[in-house]
Write a protein that binds this DNA or RNA. Structure first.
Lengths: 238, 238
DNA sequence: CGGAAACTTGAAACCTTTCAAGAGTCGTGG
DNA sequence: CCACGACTCTTGAAAGGTTTCAAGTTTCCG
């Protein structure tokens, strides 16, 4: 379907995208962003339950979420599912696939979702043309190590701290990307959240209820409103 | 101190190092390795307890262990220490420091240790000159994500499986680097190993003893001999 | 509106921790 | 070469946090 000039003008590309300071174009000059957006494939749309990629698929590119949420799932040798991460708009995923040139995890849409993709075939080429991008790629990969490390650390703490840390982290990430950091959607069911934090579904439910009783949160299903952020932060100190 | 021709000839450089297929030079041609070894600083030596780098230090380079063992420690916001990893000869560390250009962990020698370093200032430059190295750098960073992910997964399993997975992983890594995979040193004390696996010191001790009683291992302090590898692997299936 | 999925909540069971005491190991200096 | 002290490891018993099981309630969606 050919586009009219008007449609073309309204199309969101990297240089006019709200996430240009956190997504692939991070750290690049306007001119470099123009180069980048020639190779980034834009705005594919998925529906709830559909996959951005599946574990074992040949690596086809790095993904940037544009809208909606996704979860990153790892299937271990025993076939158990592990929810590794929740992905918010503006966040990148797929760096762990570079080592074997196939995806090691599955990424599944938690609701209607749109995303961009930096194709695998273009990564070396574009990094070579934009040295700043090479550094940013390494930094993004480096951040992914840190994200995974933080999950490891978090799981070593008591249930209340695990949950508080999860909520505060999600809140921070929402706020950092221009969304409300005090009233947001956790995306995951209690079961998925329990899986992510290595807690039983029942423990997640009980602990959230505790926080609510103490007046720290307001919980409506998967929607969380943070009422007393300091109390949650204090919990992490002990 | 100027070197005699003989000393120079005997010096270990990348192209005659036993780890050239797993370390920085991995995947490079002989000619590319020559280029690389001009920027890699070789064979610094540390003694037990000394640090390769400390959390918070400005990032000065990526490290390759040449001999000896090290542990990678993360200090969380509450000042708790977390043993993230044991490092064996031929293994690389420091990729998580790229994102903020400072080290996020501390790396401490577990015994007398020698290492090489790819200086921070040279990374972009050399990747630009050796495109293959750029890919390998991204792959190494990607592997580090996987390593950290595996620790997360491991911690979610029962104590016996955690310990078995640790021993099998260490065994595999030793064997992959040309050491004996059936009789090796775990490097860590029971307390450090407990910290790494999120188990109490006493649980590590008890579980090792269990394995020994079943005839799966022979334990002499930090030295482990694997007697029944299949039994350990079977434990991971359930 | 009805059925399925998601969530809450209580009680018992369980794995792991904590506490504590004792045994073993290592390096060093007399 | 052995004794000493410090560190490390083993082992038992009680305590504790989390899970499991199960039943009931709410929410969501066709």
């Amino acid at each position: 379907m050919p586009m009219t000039p008007l449609q073309k003008k309204l199309e969101v590309t990297c240089h006019n995208c709200g996430f240009s300071t956190v997504c692939f174009p991070r750290g690049l000059t306007q001119q470099e962003i123009r180069q980048l957006e020639n190779v980034v494939q834009r705005r594919k749309v998925l529906h709830k339950g559909e996959y951005l990629f599946r574990s074992g698929d040949p690596f086809h590119g790095l993904i940037a979420i544009k809208s909606g949420m996704a979860k990153l799932i790892y299937h271990d040798d025993q076939g158990e599912e592990h929810v590794l991460q929740v992905l918010l708009p503006g966040e990148l995923v797929g760096f762990d696939a570079l080592s074997e040139e196939k995806y090691r995890c599955s990424a599944q849409a938690l609701d209607t979702l749109s995303y961009c993709e930096l194709p695998a075939t273009q990564i070396s080429r574009i990094c070579f043309r934009i040295p700043t991008l090479l550094n940013e790629m390494l930094k993004h990969a480096s951040e992914a190590i840190g994200t995974q490390r933080d999950q490891t650390i978090s799981i070593k703490k008591p249930a209340e701290q695990r949950l508080a840390a999860f909520l505060l982290d999600l809140s921070r990430r929402y706020a950092f990307r221009g969304f409300c950091g005090d009233d947001f959607n956790i995306g995951l069911t209690r079961e998925e959240l329990g899986n992510h934090l290595d807690l039983a579904l029942a423990t997640v439910s009980r602990t959230l209820k505790q926080f609510e009783k103490r007046g720290w949160l307001e919980v409506h299903g998967r929607r969380i409103r943070i009422l007393d952020r300091e109390a949650l932060e204090r919990l992490l100190q002990d």
